[in-house]
């Protein structure tokens, strides 16, 4: 496969395949794969209670063994945890998607048109960002009522400013560049300039930022569920499972531990991928990497 790619494509691919990206992707792909396979293959209904309450991992079950044990209602944890993959990941994707699209539009409009519109929009973003995020999310989620959907909206609202500011910065710097000025003079509509010329330039930092924010979104949503403002019983959701399981930590360590571990692994995967992408996409690091490494080496060597 690789052999047929052009040399440029190979180089790009190599650039993206940082070790951290590879590790992060493997974790993510592994979890997603299990998230697809387990619900299809598992003989257990994630919602059905049973008499096998709080069984330890690997104990005997009526069909499969209970690989990760059972919860306080006798439901198979392994099945529930991987059922939750699609819920938690979908929630994170929608949350970040929502925040990115709204933030992007605000940032683009604000940066491109400037003036009073810019001041007003950015003031609003300043206000949003000067209320600590999770606190605002709690207030919003509480105002809307406790549900997973509302938790999603709450987290999206509080993360909009991140993208709006990012986007505005990029827009401002690109706007003055020659080709945009040229496009303007050529009589292109604002809409086309925004989407044809400015947006592509902003993609790299947006992608890096949103990858990392996917991890944060998972933590936020899980935390909201943890304090009772997110998912509701009997929804299989990691934060809720962790929250309910915490009561049984002493007698059934597996119940809260595995959902917690899943949150950790997924967040870790997103952070690793984000790191890798940043290294690959950050233009400042590109090309200078080799020279820089040699300087450090010389510097340290000459000192010792």
């Amino acid at each position: 496969m690789l052999g047929r790619l052009s040399p440029e494509a190979k180089e790009t691919l190599a650039r993206f395949m940082q070790p951290s990206t590879i590790i992060g992707l493997s974790i993510l792909v592994g979890i997603v794969a299990l998230g697809v396979i387990v619900p299809l293959a598992s003989p257990y209904d994630p919602y059905a209670t049973s008499e096998d309450v709080l069984r330890p991992p690997l104990s005997e079950g009526p069909a499969w063994p209970y690989i990760l044990g059972t919860d306080s209602l006798g439901r198979d944890l392994f099945t529930r945890i991987f059922y939750a993959v699609s819920i938690d990941l979908a929630v994170a994707l929608v949350t970040v998607g929502l925040a990115v699209s709204i933030g992007m539009v605000i940032g683009l409009v604000s940066g491109y048109f400037g003036g009073i519109l810019d001041s007003v929009l950015m003031r609003i973003m300043d206000v949003l960002i000067s209320i600590p995020g999770f606190m605002l999310a709690i207030a919003v989620a509480a105002a809307l009522g406790a549900s997973l959907f509302n938790a999603m909206l709450a987290v999206a609202v509080v993360t909009i400013p991140i993208y709006a500011r990012l986007m505005r910065g990029v827009t401002l710097s690109v706007k003055e560049q020659l080709y945009v000025t040229a496009a303007k003079e050529a009589g292109l509509s604002s809409f086309r300039i925004l989407f044809r010329h400015i947006l592509p330039n902003a993609m790299a930092p947006l992608i890096v930022q949103s990858t990392i924010e996917l991890g944060n979104a998972i933590i936020y949503i899980a935390s909201l569920s943890f304090i009772g403002l997110g998912a509701q019983e009997p929804q299989p959701e990691w934060g809720l499972m962790l929250s309910t399981g915490r009561k049984y930590l002493r007698e059934a360590w597996w119940y809260p531990t595995f959902p917690g571990l899943m949150i950790f692994l997924v967040v870790l995967a997103f952070n690793l991928i984000g790191d890798g992408l940043r290294d690959a996409l950050d233009p400042r690091l590109r090309g200078t990497l080799k020279i820089r490494r040699s300087i450090v080496w010389q510097l340290l060597k000459s000192e010792t």
């Binding site: 933590i219 935390s223 934060g239 962790l242 930590l249 870790l268 952070n271």
Partner: peptide, 22 residues
């Protein structure tokens, strides 16, 4: 570093409470 920033507070707090508290 990346493990540290990926650690969910809800989980970390619980684990520390068990290990040290109990």
């Amino acid at each position: 570093g990346v493990i540290g920033i990926s650690m969910p507070t809800i989980w970390l707090g619980m684990v520390l409470q068990i290990v040290f508290g109990i």
